[in-house]
Each structure stands twice: as C-alpha cells, then as structure tokens.
Design a protein around this nucleic acid. Sequence first.
DNA 1: TGTTGTGAACGAATTCACAGCG
DNA 2: CGCTGTGAATTCGTTCACAACA
Lengths: 206, 206
Amino acid sequence: MTTATELSEKTIERLCRVYGYLDALRHRGVESVTSKELAAAAGATHDTLRKDLSVVGVTGFTRAGYPVASLKQTLGEKLNLTRTRTAALVGLGRLGTALLDYARFSENGFKITAAFDSSINKIERIRSSVDIFPVRRLKEIVGERRIELGIIAVPGESAQQVTDDLVEAGVAGILNFSPVVVHTPARIVHVDIDFTNSLRFIAARM
Amino acid sequence: MTTATELSEKTIERLCRVYGYLDALRHRGVESVTSKELAAAAGATHDTLRKDLSVVGVTGFTRAGYPVASLKQTLGEKLNLTRTRTAALVGLGRLGTALLDYARFSENGFKITAAFDSSINKIERIRSSVDIFPVRRLKEIVGERRIELGIIAVPGESAQQVTDDLVEAGVAGILNFSPVVVHTPARIVHVDIDFTNSLRFIAARM
DNA sequence: TGTTGTGAACGAATTCACAGCG
DNA sequence: CGCTGTGAATTCGTTCACAACA
C-alpha cells in the first residue's frame, strides 16, 4: 500500500508547493484544476509536474484536470502532511520574533510550542502565547515535550551548537535561517535558508 | 577574458556560499583553505566543489589548498559580487521590518535604499534610516532611483502585482518571501523563499 | 600522504513525442 | 481539440578514477 518509492527531493518540493496551492484553491471554492495551472504554481513545466503526480500514484484523470479536494487529500497522505507538527524556535532576535507569530505556520499544521533565547532580558520582555526559555534548557525541554522540528534563528557562530543540541534532544528535522550551512547526521532532514546568499545568487545571475 | 561560460545555477549557488565563507575566513585571519573545507561550508562534496572552481577558471593550486584572499577576490569578480547593489523592500509587516535592518545585507554589499507599505499607519510609525513610501509610489521611486533589486515581503495576494510593478520599474532581480511563486519575464532573475513550504518539505521527508 | 585537476562513467531529472481518453 | 499518461531521448550534474604535484 504505502509505496515508499523514494521520492526525489525536487519532486517533494514541487508537490509540497502544489499541496499549498490546492489548499488555497479549495478555500476559493475551485473544484477542478489542470496540470498546467498546478505547474505554474509550483514553478515547473506541466510535463514535470504530471510526472511528479504519477510517481506518487496520482493517475487516471484523463479528461479535464484534477479534482481539487481529493487531490489535496491524496497528496496530504502521500507526503505525510495531514498531522500537525510541533516545533521549537531558537533565537528571538528580529527574525526569530517575526517567525514566532508567523500566522502561516499555524495555519498550515506547524505549531511552535517552545522558544529559546540566550538573553534573559528578551525572555522576559517578549509577550507571546508560546513558552519561552533560556537556551541552556533547550535539550531538556525539547526532549521532554518530544518536539519534532527545530527552527534556528541564531547568529552563525552558534548555529552548529544549537543544531547539535536539537539533534541530541531528538528532533527529526531542522529549518536553519542562520548564514552557515549546518551539518547533521544523515537521518535528520534539514534545510538551510540564507537570505544574504539568495541575494548574492541573484546578483551573480543578473 | 570574461569567459561567459554560462555557469549552472547549482554552481553559482555553491560558489556564492563559498564566497561568503571565504569572507568569514579572511576576517578570522585564515590564509589558506582546502577544497574539502570549502565543500563543507557550501554543503557539497569536494569533487563537485573543485569542478565548480575549475569552471570559473580557478586552477593551478596543486599543492595544499587555496589562498583565501586571492580566491575571494577572483570569485568576487567572476560572480560580479564586488559592487554594492541597491534594493527596494516592499511590505513592512513583521518579516519586512526584520529585513529592514538585517545587518548582514549591508555587511555584504546589499543596501536597502527605499521601503514601501500600503498602510500609512505603518509608514509613519516605523523609525528607520531608510526612506519609506506608500506602495502606490513604488514604480515612480524605484524607477527614479534606478534601484536594482526588489525584496518582496507582502502577503501572497499582492505578491504578483508587486512583482509586476518592480519589473516595470526596472529592477533586474527579485527576492520573494511571499508564499506564492511569482512569474517574471525571462530576463529577470528571481528566487522564491517560502518558509512554510520549507517546513512542509522537511515534514514530508522525515 | 594529502591535495588538486580532469576526463570518463554513471545517474538523475527534464523534455520530447505521441498514444489515449472525454 | 485540449488534457492526461508514459516510454524514449536528451540534457544536466555528480561521482569515480587516476595522474600530477609538493
């Protein structure tokens, strides 16, 4: 049943985007959508996107597009996106606090259930419904609460240390906003997002 | 001289990371570095990274690593990263204001010279050294000031409109933080960063 | 020995081309 | 006719293997 056909990273990324787009369509009351439109929303061609869909077993809609609701449901199951995930946020600088109440996380099944900073000052000052702790309690709290994801918004100097602590505490995934590439054991999935590097990339190509 | 050997996107991305890492090494006073270390900093293997370097003509260091300073210089020239670029920031919500004084931008040759929001309220409230304007003046200001880059931090609903305006005003590159994939003419280089989708991607893989 | 440089082999991903369905 | 589904061809990128150098 669960065809663990090892989806490629690119395929997963595109299908995740499609999933989000289908959600938006559903809210707008749209019932049917073509591969071409989905491709545009995912930033791909329709060939590629249909191939992605066929890889996860979505097939048989050989008429005029895919039904929004059921496709979303199917993708949600295939990508394991139906369950809400808990996350720990580390670093409450400007970016961290912006992420702390980034509404789109909670609207899409990601719930930040603990946040950490090294400055007692900040911990006391920030008003939030999320529990905030000093970073030295990271391993303890993340472990106890069985938090699944780590979101890193600390300076580059401490990013690898925070990564190691999160891994030791048992998270399965890490989203790293610091400007260094962090390293994890192979079983941990992580993504590095470096704003400055994205600007460099753009500058180098223009 | 300028071997426009059409670098691949992956190569550019990695070399940009290397460039940033070399800068950090230089500040730490390190003078020499191996391809292995550069590869780790870029999240790649040393084979791949050496191939990247050879593509931009960096070769001939067949002994014990590359000299930090001169390699940084060379990459800076090859990637066109030596000149400071101006950027316009659109959207001053939580993320936008965080980006407004993200120190790493200015430290790395990117200067936000104008910011825009649709809310007069916010425009008046935010204290910043950057000039802030109502978004309806975007085309006018970006055009006049010949701003090169656009950074989008508005909700998904307005992202494509803002994109179109930026393109019309003449920017050459766009960094889009909204949760939709925006579309531009082929001559414009743009990258879409969708936090929620990155979390989805991680969740789907764990 | 440890490191660079590079052609050759390999593998992955996209695009092409076309059959089939409504 | 427009859309889906999929094998084949092609392009692209990485890894391998090894020579050369210090």
